[in-house]
Computed example of a mutant assay.
Amino acid sequence: MARQSPRPQGNRTVEPSAEFDVEFRGVAKRYGDVTAVSGIDLQLKRGAFIALLGPSGCGKTTCLRMIGGFEQPSDGDLLIAGQSMRGVPAYRRPVNMVFQHYALFPHFDVETNVAYGLRQIRPRLDDKEIRRRAAEALDMVHLGKFAKRRIHELSGGQQQRVALARAIVNRPRVLLLDEPLAALDKKLRIAMQLELQNLHRELGITFLLVTHDQEEALSMSDQVCVMNTGRIVQLSSPQDIYDNPASLFVADFVGKTNRLDAVVEHQGGSVAARFGNGLVLPLTRPDVAIGKAVVAIRPEAIALQPATPASTGLVGDVTHRIFLGSSVEYSVAVAGLGDLLVFADRALQGGAASLYEPGARVELTISPAAPHVFSHDAA
């Protein structure tokens, strides 16, 4: 690829970046008195698969639309491949987008839908090259035999693949995915998650996925960028986001968690969390602040066993059981703490023998390494 020429920006020149495909530099976006995005600094490495994850209204789609050129930043700058995109229209940016509802042309067949973007290129490509590249894109998404089908003759998953083929046929530098799997049923979503991962590896281009579905974000991406109220609250690997949430919001939003009020205090040479029912739980995590706190405990970090008259630990009563096949979700009422959510892996618990009926008395065990402790004021 030929080296891009530096692009003037104000009184300075920005050199094209070989490392980052997309950069947000202090980007803010306002709509009148409403601030949708505030002070975003973010760098997307070339060839990465990044997920923007957060609740509705957190600013993730606004960020995607600014990259695509459908919105312009109110403040700051946005660069693609080292070049400022300020004032650059959507059709001149090296990006393509797959929309949530696909936006396919119903009166065109599959091949014509995929080739549409190629026919807008100037100088114009010849028909043979257009057909070749459209066929190549369709083969990538396993729809080579469907080129002459009408859109209404395709299933939802096939239509989603047509939208993907249309997005990649122009060989964009960045592929933007705006909740592309939201309209699919669960089984098809899982299959398409694998397809997108395979496509990412095959193409080697940067993928940016916007979703509010934590399972999609964690299973598909290299890095997850969690957003809330227009800001980035944590950017890390999927495993780190789940295992080491930076805030109570992240712990709550990514996965399920039990929130318990406690007081963190010194206990000998270590620290422990004291709960309202008198339970004292030793803590092994470093840098835990002394004082009022909110303790977050993942449901799978709590072990269950039948309670006995001799049980002196944390004891409660099963109030609800949700059978999930390979695992079971329990709600356990504990005096002074309320209802705790517990996940039990049936393979580790002995299959059907591990099922507890509502009303069963159980003993709960929490590892000292399991709790995440957050300042009560920050919560």
Rank of each mutant, 00 (worst) to 15 (best):
S247C: 11
D126V: 10
R201W: 09
G59F: 12
P6W: 14
R166Q: 06
N198R: 14
I297T: 05
R259F: 15
R119F: 01
F105T: 12
G338E: 10
L260V: 08
E329Q: 14
A303P: 00
V22L: 12
R346V: 08
L125H: 04
L184S: 04
I130P: 11
P286R: 05
A183N: 15
V342T: 11
R7S: 11
L324W: 09
E129L: 14
R259D: 02
G69R: 05
L176S: 07
H142S: 13
N198V: 00
P358F: 12
G350F: 04
S331R: 14
I168V: 04
P16I: 14
F99D: 04
E215V: 13
V362Q: 07
A303R: 13
T284P: 01
D287Y: 03
E329A: 13
N11S: 15
E300W: 05
G47N: 09
A48G: 13
A36I: 06
A135F: 01
P309A: 14
L118K: 07
C225G: 08
G336N: 11
G39S: 12
R201V: 08
A272T: 10
G117C: 03
K256G: 14
D261M: 07
I121K: 15
I322T: 12
S221Q: 09
K148R: 15
R3T: 13
G87S: 01
R274I: 10
G87D: 02
Y356N: 07
A48K: 13
A378P: 00
G32A: 07
A303M: 03
T35R: 09
A103V: 15
R274F: 07
V226D: 11
Q305W: 04
E15P: 00
S5A: 14
L340C: 07
V14C: 06
M66S: 05
Q120L: 14
D185Q: 04
Q193R: 15
L337M: 15
A90Q: 03
A163E: 03
A310N: 11
P358A: 12
P89D: 06
R12A: 09
G117T: 06
A165G: 04
L52Q: 06
E300G: 01
L194K: 06
P180S: 14
L348Q: 15
G336Y: 12
Y116F: 15
Y116R: 08
G32V: 09
Q83C: 03
D109F: 03
Y31S: 03
F253P: 12
R132D: 14
K148M: 10
S221E: 05
I50R: 07
Q159D: 02
Q160H: 00
L118Q: 03
T365R: 10
